[in-house]
Design a binder for these strands. Sequence first.
RNA 1: GGCGGGUUGGCGGAGAGGUUACGCAGCGGAUUGCAAAUCCGUGUAGACCGGUUCGAUUCCGGUACCCGCCUCCA
Length: 488
Amino acid sequence: MDISLTNSATRKKERFTPLDPGNVRMYVCGPTVYDRAHLGNARPVVVFDVLYRLLRHVYGPEHVTYVRNFTDVDDKINARAAESGRAIGEITAETTQWFLDDMGALGALEPSIRNGADHERAMPRATQYIAQMVAMIEALIDKGHAYAAEGHVLFAVDSWTDGYGRLSGRSVDDMIAGARVEVAPYKRNPMDFVLWKPSSVDLPGWESPWGRGRPGWHIECSAMAEALLGKTFDIHGGGNDLMFPHHENEIAQSCCANGTEKMAQVWLHNEMLQVEGKKMSKSLGNFFTVRDLLDQGVPGEVIRFVMLSTHYRKPMDWTEKKAKEARGHLAAWDRLKRHGLSQELSALQLAELVDENVIDALCDDLNTSGAINRLFEMAAAAKTSELDSRQLRSFFATLEFLGFKNLDVERLQRRSAIETAHEKAVLKAHQHSLIEARAEAMQSKDFSEVDRLKAALTAAGVEVRMSKTDVELVEGPDFDPSKLEDLA
RNA sequence: GGCGGGUUGGCGGAGAGGUUACGCAGCGGAUUGCAAAUCCGUGUAGACCGGUUCGAUUCCGGUACCCGCCUCCA
């Protein structure tokens, strides 16, 4: 069961061989916490969640470490605090929890250290690693890769011309030619980037050998990755817009400070997300967050399905139509589950029931759309099998493995759980009267009473499904129980 | 200007050098008191120009068009 992945560093699909199969280590760049995650932010989370699940399946959950940071020191956060008058810590804590809630709704597992636990440590906050950043910057200065100037510390790209630009396929000369970088007078080379910058009293800052200041962007990932995963680890992931400069700079910092050849063995980058064929942007008015969709009644599973239906290295287009189709598929599978499984699968069963063809698809450079196609095949076979058949159990185990646990896509539109329970009892009563009425009507051939009940139920937003032997009542999105009160 | 990705049937979207992708929609049928759900069947492809080959949508080269990044927006 070999995994192959397209390594951005070599631009080739390569067989994945962990440095230490006993501890496969992956780092994914997490959010800067100043606002709700938008849909584009969700893509790498979902993509790398699938990879995490695959690695756990192949190497064992206790042999995989997945780290994803929260960057909670950044000028965007400072700006947000300044304009809102709120405390920075309040903003970052709130936004961090939003992120966890929203990504959890998408079925994403929380990162963890090896044993599937220790989520807190696997989601490090930049502000908890300032000391490690300072130490790394000092090492860079000692080795001649960085210099202090006017309260700043800068990385000297000319000190590492062999390595700098290798990931993104640019040379320092090329970049200078079309440079749009800030040309600060204290920079030796215009491409030099900030490792540390001075903070005025009104900005967050930490004491350092270069005075009170704060870290530049990039250094937090280098420091946290080293602290939690070591100087060289297996996989580093993120959106492809991070390839330059963020990842390029991370590599420069880590390799030069640690004296290593590589920061990560494999670099993975997902393509960007579009909305209805266009880049998502505030100016086009097609910008929305994951929470916006959830609030509109689009469940996380639908978002996840749409995300996984496009390969991670291709642009992914979010469209209403795709969301609608995804909802339809999940709803059909939910019906299949209610009729096909008499009980939930145990955790023990889950791992062994995961379909090998789905695993094979994922092993082939994370071919998630191939995996979904396999799901359709499995569903077709499962449909015609007996109650609790292996096909059915395997199908739903595989769905759960892929992060689709709750297939009830209409649930967001319904009332709270307590109300739902009450509604179920009400519906049960109506279901019985409908069954009786129909039985009578079958004899008398007078269906007026059946039609009356059915019409009333439909008007109240209940879907009435009649089969030869049974009557099923399902609350639809517009279900309003009050409309059933005067129904006899 | 530099770097990278893409172009498949009405739509979405894969794999494979030669055999049905699949899904949605459409159409036909079965089932059904009606309606759902479900089942069966079915048409439509591979941007353009060359090359390699017995044979390419699949490999190689070129052209056109589209898109992203290089602007701390993932």
